[in-house]
Design a protein around this nucleic acid. Structure first.
Length: 274
DNA sequence: CTCGGAGCCTGTCTGC
DNA sequence: TGCAGACAGGCTCCGA
């Protein structure tokens, strides 16, 4: 389910809903989540809530050790993988238990973690540095044409597969990789290291444009994705190629094609992507 | 390094 | 209607 725009949407919506609230209790309902020592977060106050790569990170600020000490923070990161959802529930209503994997009780409500396929993960970090993803975030100031060019330069991988690797750029997944390549008019099987300077510029521009538009639309919803407020995204209305196998390319009218590349469906326009 | 395949899970949709 | 198979927004591991 969630790629960068969806995770960004969840983090942005969750932040004002839970920042400043006290963590009362965290319940895990799925053994696959392991047994992270979450009790150490009890009584701490939620600070920043932000996206890191494809993870939602929640800062838990503990009490100051003494009156001069600054509060000790820990960070809880949630990876939604394919079908995870983080939903804010105000008050003390009863929660649907189906697919409920974890519940973060805070004063005034709870954050519910639903995940039908159970691929999602929770991790507890003792320092902020540990929450940083390995790759470059395309929404960060460091994402320049030069930086993208350098990352691409050494690779003999097809562009579509390259874009899915989280150790180079973080946050892109199967939907946006296809959409970005369409916007950049680049063929998904073109080798990453073979791009001209102008093509790198196009890819850079397309990455930012597609992600910003998707964030503005609160992400893409097919079936699973919901925002923190239980709403759906609307970017699916703007998808040019993803899931549009056989339909006309919105730019040139040629039939959009689909093929499986490294186990994942790839969609592209055979006429205007070169 | 890269690729392909299997695996982790459950739900939904398609075609016979 | 029933059932098998394909497929799904992510990622990791293995062997070639």
């Amino acid at each position: 389910m969630p790629e960068l725009p969806e995770v960004e949407t969840v983090a942005r919506q969750l932040a004002p809903l839970i920042a400043g609230r006290r963590i009362e209790r965290i319940e895990l309902f799925d053994a696959r989540l392991g047994r992270p020592p979450l009790r150490q977060l009890y009584g701490s106050t939620i600070g920043r809530v932000f996206r890191s790569g494809k993870e939602v990170v929640i800062e838990a600020r503990g009490e100051p050790a003494d009156e001069h000490g600054s509060p000790r923070s820990r960070w809880l990161s949630v990876h939604l993988r394919m079908t995870g959802r983080l939903i804010w529930r105000a008050g003390r209503a009863r929660d649907a238990r189906r697919h409920l994997r974890a519940r973060f009780r805070v004063d005034g409500g709870a954050v519910l973690f639903y995940d039908p396929r159970r691929f999602g993960t929770l991790r507890l970090h003792q320092c902020a540095e540990q929450t940083a993803p390995p790759g470059l975030d395309p929404m960060s100031p460091g994402f320049s044409v030069e930086a993208l060019g350098e990352l691409l330069a050494s690779s003999a991988q097809p562009l579509k597969s390259w874009l899915l690797r989280q150790d180079r750029l973080v946050g892109l997944g199967n939907i946006y990789a296809s959409e970005i390549l369409f916007a950049a008019r680049l063929h998904p099987e073109k080798l990453a290291g073979s791009l001209s300077r102008r093509q790198v510029v196009r890819l850079h521009r397309a990455t930012i444009d597609v992600l910003e538009a998707a964030i503005a639309a609160c992400g893409t919803t097919f079936s699973d994705f919901q925002t923190a407020q239980g709403l759906t995204g609307s970017y699916q209305r703007f998808l040019a190629v993803y899931g549009r196998d056989g339909q006309p390319c919105p730019r040139c009218g040629a039939a959009v094609r689909r093929r499986v590349q490294a186990q994942r469906a790839t969609f592209w326009c055979p006429r205007c992507q070169r």
